[in-house]
Structure formats: structure tokens, C-alpha cells
Design a protein around this nucleic acid. Structure first.
Lengths: 347, 347
DNA sequence: TTGTAGGCGTTATCAG
DNA sequence: CTGATAACGCCTACAA
């Protein structure tokens, strides 16, 4: 029976017009002290909840959001965020959200710089960024601040880069989880951490996972040895050579932790060399990983929820731009554990 | 620059009035064949996307949804769905969705029947149901059909009960997953399946998990033995006695799979009797389970996503009632794996 | 069977 | 500075 309170009602109670109430609520100025007071007194008494539906219908404004992230045709991992962005676009389009993609080459920071400039020139109302290089990202953040464009980052946490919001995994914890899973049922052994294309891709990201992995191992066992190696792309001859070397030097290796989405490269090598007893743990449900998971060459994939990361990113920007809501400065997503038996439930 | 197409635009193109277009789009009848054809021809050419914002603003109708599920103060598991329902209520309230709870006692089907009748008398626009008893649920579904009230079910899948939509886990697959996790790192052993309060709670639910568990074990090892027992509430003296018996009869038990959220009851017993080497796998992030998971008495919890289940349930009803969208007849949620190291990321 | 007018709650505009 | 008034796109009612 209780009707919701409208601006009209407030106007009546405060004995002013709707226009004045609107001006007070959005403090657009041009209100006399007396009117101001009258309205504020009413607002204190009642709990005014603006009708978002009416608001968006009325203003009919559209917001341009620029999505600055790596080209999925260069690194397939980035297909996942693209999915989340599409979903978000569909969901928030009715609220006037439009998304424009600015893909860059994740192996060339020049490409990023060029695209970043394009984004600024584009004058978007908000930006979703997947930061890769520390310094370049910091510079870009500064630019956004200068132009007053709200920025939301996802996937890679970069210290001191203070966007409106960061969405991603707790990487340290993610490494600890990998370690726990590595030890499950066999609390001792020699484990190999592999960073693939670490120099060109984001090193901070991978290093934090390593730290977490080592920390857990140190706390939870004394008969554990952890070795780290870095590999180039599998097209590079050093890829196999380095792996061969490691197995020669540490024949007792019983588990491998690949710190990015490219476990499939290692899986392929393991199948070729018939090393099927190892426990292999990697990241992300990229297409390339799935067949290996299904036939147990990869035992476990940690799911970074890349789709949800980007979806939430757009969602937060929408909350900020359209609904003027507060959004969390940092949002850690769940660390999903995926095996052959629950894979289908995730896709 | 391209404006979105409005009903007004279609009316102009089809050379009829807005009213006629509206009648065609919502097939409310009372349209001549010629007008009908004119409008349909235009609709085929263009892709009309009705403006949901304007639609909900205009109709200003409110929808009452009845949530018929067990009382959380009797079984704590049901706190989780309650959380999801609250979130959904907050999110969809702007679209006119109002939710009314009808809690029943999950140990007494009489209580359910009484509440179910109340729900029908309440004449809601939609119903969210957590079915527990097969026959009672079937009867209730028939009632809803008769009264033309859309019904969405979650958590427990019941054969032949054909609601508008079912949301939950694939229970068979869930059992297979438990088995895979049980074997991880130790492919042989004797495993114990425990159903707690199976007679009073939903037996179908638990039985399907057992089937999945046994199927996986049968396919993946020959040195595996699986035993099933049923326990009453831990307050009942038979609880400990039955467990003691099992351990006496099968001293080599190396893993326990509790098929519902009450692994904490078993964990308590294991701690008391100092049996800490066993792998214990259970379900759900209920408060009672968490400390045991943190100190590794429970090794793994399978996360049924109870919050999301109920959230989606309300979300689907909203889609159906407000937006007239098609909703999936069945939605299987992901089978989450939770250990001590990724627990915090889930809560 | 058809067309039109009025209203949903807000915002924006423009005379007073 | 203030208060009316016209959008926003759709739905409901009612008159033709």
C-alpha cells in the first residue's frame, strides 16, 4: 500500500517545486539557502531512493567504454575476457553502455602505447584495462587521471597503480593453492615451476605465483625440493632443450607447475616424451588446455575466471557511470580448481 | 547517430498507429489481417529490441514471488540459499520483484504441506521451490500448474517434476568428482560413503551422488573397495556406534565421502578418535564445516553454489515474468572444489 | 478494429 | 533563483 517516495512528493512536503528538489539532490547549485534548508530537512526525515529505471530512461545518455586488452588472435587466453565483455555489453546495453575494443599485441609494448593513445583520443567515458607492463601501465593510469576518465583494471595486479577498481585473483594465494594440490596425497617430492615466455609476458604476475608456491612448500614439508625454470615459446629450439636438461639434472621430478595458461605446451612435450606419471598443474580453461585435461596429461587447471573478471570490470564501470554507486577498490575472485571430472560443469 | 528503433518508428513504417503495432508485437488480438501483415513485414526487416527500461517504468507492476524452502534455523545449509535470495531481491527490486519467504521444517513433510497450501492461497506470481520429498513435490507442482503459477526448482533434481526451470548440480557427476578427488595421489584403498539422516532428508539426492562415486571407482581401479553406511543425527547414540563398527570391520579405510553438508559431524568424530590420516570429502561451505577444512580434518568440500542456485532461480523468474524471456529448462552449475588454500577466495 | 491521450519518475529546458 | 513543462519509450484505457 505504501507508495514509493518520488521527487514530486518531496517537493510537496518541502513546499517547493520538483526542479528545486532536483537541484538540491544533485547539488547543481542555483538554490537559495532557504529552499535548500527546506528540502534538506525533508530529505533527512525520509529515505529517498531514486528510481534508476526512470533515471536512465530520462537521461538517455550513452556511455562509451574502451576495452584495452591483448589481441586474442595472438594469445588465445584473451578470448576468455572477450567473452565476459560481450556478455556484459549485452546485459548493460539497455543502460546505455557501449563497448569499443582496442586490442594490442601482448609481446610488443609499442603496440600497447599506440593503442593507449588511441583510447585517450577516443575520449571514452570509462576504460577497462588489462595491464601487462608495469611502467607503461603506470604512465597510462596517470594519463587517465589527467583526463578524468575512470579506469578499471583486471587480471594482473600492479602495485602503486591505483585504478578505480582492480579485479583478479590473489596471485600469491593462487600459488599456495597450486602447491597444496601438488602435495595432495604425496607430501614429498621434487617439483618444477615453469614460467613460459616470462620475459615478454608479465613477469610480476608469474613471480607472485612462484612465491606463494614456495612459501607453502616451505611451511608444509621438509622433503621437498622446488626448482624454477624459464622457457621461451615452444617454437624456439631452447624449449625442449631446457626441459631435457632439467629432467636430466633432476630425474626425480614428480610434479610441474606452469604459472600461466600455456600448460598445453608442456603437456605436449610430456606426451611426446612419454612422461605420464608427473602431476601437471596449470592455469585457465583455454581451448588448447582442455584435451590434455580430459586425458589427464594435465591433472589440474586453476581457473582464473577470466570471463567473470572482465564481466565484473564492465559491470563496475556501469555501476560507477550510470548508477553512481561505490565500487570496491579491489575484488579478488575465487580460485577455481578444475579437473577432468568437473570440467564440463565449467563450460 | 543511428537511433534505436521505437514502436513509433515501426508504426510510421507500417503506416499504422502505435497501438496497432503494440497489439501485434504482444499478440493481444483485435488486429485486422491487413494491418497485421503490414506490421509483420516491417518487423521482419528490422531487428526490434524493446526498451526494457521504458517497459518496466511504464507498467509499474509488482510481482510477488514465494520462496518455499526449509527453515535455515533447523538446517544451517539453508542459510546459503537465503543469501542468494536476498541478493536477488535487492538486484531485481527495481523491476518490481518482491519476495516472500515460506520456510518449512525439512524433517516434517506435514510442515511442507501446510506451507505449500499457504503459498497457493497467497496467489504469488511465481514460486521458487527447494523440493525435498518426491511425492509431495509432485503434488505441489500439479497444483501450481492448475493455478498457472510459474515454478522454478533448485538444489534437488526430481525426475518427472517438470518445473519451468531446474537449477542445481549434476549430482551423478558430483559423485564422480568426489571419487576422482578421493583417488588423487593414491589410486587404491577402501573408501566409505556416509549418508547422514538419509531417511528423513532427501534420499534421491544422496543416492545419485553415491552412484557417481561408485561408477568412477569401478572404471578407474581394481584395488578399490567402497562401503556405504547410513547414520542418524550425531545426537543419536547409534551415530558413533555405527562408525565404530565400520572401522572395526574395515580397519584399512583411507577415505570418507559424506554426501551432504554434514561432514562436520563426521569430522568431529574423527578428531575425537584421533583418526587424522583419512581423507574426508564433503559438501558445502556451511559455517560448521569451515574450521574443520581450515585445520585439514576435512580435506575437500564440494561447493554446490547454493547461493547462486537460489539467486539464479529468482533471476530466471524475473526474466520470465518481467522480460518474457525464455529460460533454460535445466541449468547445471559448476562443481566447485574447495580446500583450505582457496577457501577464503570463496567467502 | 483502430488511433490517441495520459502517465510511469527523472532530467533538461526555458520562460518568469 | 524558481517553477512549469516537454521529453525518454512503452503500456493501458478509452474514445472513435
Amino acid at each position: 500500500m505504501k507508495k514509493t517516495i518520488r521527487i514530486k512528493d518531496i517537493a510537496k512536503m518541502a513546499e517547493v517545486s520538483m526542479g528545486t528538489v532536483d537541484r538540491v539532490i544533485h547539488n547543481r547549485g542555483k538554490v537559495s539557502a532557504t529552499s535548500m534548508e527546506k528540502v534538506l530537512k525533508v530529505l533527512e526525515k525520509i529515505d529517498y531512493q531514486p528510481n534508476l529505471i526512470a533515471k536512465t530512461l530520462s537521461s538517455a545518455k550513452t556511455y562509451k567504454i574502451a576495452a584495452l586488452l591483448p589481441d586474442a588472435s595472438i594469445d588465445p587466453f584473451w578470448l576468455l575476457p572477450k567473452i565476459g565483455i560481450s556478455q556484459a555489453e549485452k546485459e548493460f546495453n539497455p543502460f546505455g553502455i557501449e563497448i569499443y575494443a582496442f586490442p594490442f599485441n601482448p609481446y610488443q609494448s609499442d603496440s600497447f602505447l599506440a593503442r593507449a593513445q588511441e583510447v585517450i583520443d577516443f575520449e571514452p567515458d570509462g576504460i577497462l584495462l588489462a595491464p601487462i607492463w608495469r611502467q607503461e601501465s603506470l604512465d597510462f593510469t596517470a594519463m587517465c587521471k589527467r583526463h578524468q576518465i575512470p579506469l578499471v583494471c583486471f587480471n594482473t595486479y600492479i602495485e602503486a597503480l591505483h585504478p578505480l577498481s582492480f579485479i583478479g585473483q590473489n596471485l600469491h594465494q593462487s600459488g599456495r593453492l597450486a602447491a597444496e594440490l601438488m602435495c595432495m596425497g604425496r607430501p614429498a617430492g621434487t617439483f618444477l615451476i615453469i614460467h613460459i615466455e616470462e620475459k615478454t609476458l608479465n613477469s610480476v604476475h608469474l613471480y607472485e605465483k612462484e612465491q606463494g608456491f614456495r612459501e607453502y612448500m616451505q611451511q608444509n614439508g621438509n622433503k621437498i625440493e622446488v626448482i624454477t625454470i624459464e622457457l621461451e615459446s615452444p617454437h624456439h629450439p631452447s624449449f625442449e632443450a631446457t626441459l631435457e636438461d632439467s629432467f636430466r639434472q633432476y630425474p626425480q621430478i614428480s610434479g610441474i607447475f606452469v604459472t600461466n595458461s600455456k600448460a598445453y605446451d608442456v603437456a605436449q612435450y610430456l606426451e611426446k616424451t612419454r612422461r605420464m606419471q608427473l602431476r601437471l598443474i596449470g592455469y585457465d580453461l583455454v581451448q588448447e588446455n582442455l584435451p590434455f585435461l580430459q586425458r589427464h596429461t594435465i591433472d589440474i587447471l586453476i581457473h582464473q575466471n577470466a570471463e567473470q573478471q572482465s564481466f565484473l570490470g564492465i559491470s563496475y564501470l556501469t555501476d560507477h557511470l550510470v548508477f553512481k554507486r561505490d565500487i570496491p577498490a579491489i575484488k579478488h575472485l575465487s580460485l577455481g580448481i578444475v579437473t577432468s571430472e568437473n570440467l564440463t560443469s565449467y563450460i
